[in-house]
Write a protein that binds this DNA or RNA. Structure first.
Lengths: 159, 159
DNA sequence: TATTGTTATACTCTATAACTATA
DNA sequence: TATAGTTATAGAGTATAACAATA
């Protein structure tokens, strides 16, 4: 019984993931790689995050992350400023443009999902919502929140 | 209401995906890249699939797929034989070793998921099972089944 | 001495183009 | 002429090593 449910989970979750990915991909205005997209997501939740913060989140090394961020910076999707408290660190934040391209993709995806859910019966929506709540508790966010070290106060980086 | 549910879906599904990925990764006996792993999965469901079949499934080009398959072949995880009917085509199948390394990872992951589900209340399991059924219908397998062209009869490839 | 971030270099994975063999 | 697959070459993306600046 439990194993059947696990097997279902293992089969069905990738189907939903694939659909979500496809929507996100279809609606990104910028040509962004997956790590770049995830970086924008992360920065929306964690404005002022450092390079190491982002690297940890993505599971990439700092050098790779640094290079990848260069691409976002050159397209004005984020800002990279030096931190006042600890001048080794950088503080990255989304620009308006970065927020917008992210929002557009997310909202379009939400819309598509909502449309799909609209075709469900009310009790099916009830069941799904309940199940998602159960899953959220069973599979909590692994990501450790940023240690609070990250600066809100930043100074403009010299050119 | 529907949109809340969509938003939940968009947040929770990645959490579960991440947990599944982590388990699969932890329990792979061979050092396999993600596409290699997916290829083994695909061949288990579609024995005798051709190179183009696999390439389409992965969203890779035939040359990339060919090279990637070389790595699986050299480790005896699959066989690559010429097709009798259409001698341009190849027919790939998992070897016993390929099946085993796949099964090991999948079973270990299932075990981990089952353990988690074991801690649920019976009615929670009921709800989850029901929700998964709903999702399966809403997000059907996009992948078109192989056109039946693929050979069951194969001839050994010449060296 | 340890940490943050960058630069330099090499490797892996992928694609495009050109080719062979078969249909 | 079109299709299945491979080889050759080039471009992203990643890692490791070495470095500079700061703590």
């Amino acid at each position: 019984m439990q194993e059947d449910c696990a097997r279902e989970l293992l089969e069905v979750v990738p189907l939903v993931t694939r659909a979500i990915r496809k929507e996100l991909r279809q609606h990104r205005t910028e040509e962004l790689s997956v790590p770049q997209f995830r970086t924008l997501f992360f920065l929306r939740r964690n404005p002022g995050a450092s390079l190491v913060d982002v690297a940890n989140h993505l599971g990439l090394t700092p050098p790779s992350t640094s290079k990848m961020v260069d691409g976002l910076l050159s397209r004005n999707l984020l800002t990279r400023q030096n931190c006042e408290n600890d001048r080794r660190r950088i503080a990255m934040k989304l620009t308006k443009k970065g927020e917008k391209s992210l929002d557009y993709a997310v909202e379009a995806t939400l819309e598509s999902l909502t449309k799909k859910i609209n075709s469900f019966l009310p009790e099916q929506i009830e069941t799904l919502s309940h199940a998602l709540q159960i899953l959220r508790e069973a599979f909590p966010e692994t990501e450790k929140p940023i240690e609070g070290k990250h600066c809100s106060q930043t100074i403009q980086k010299l050119p």
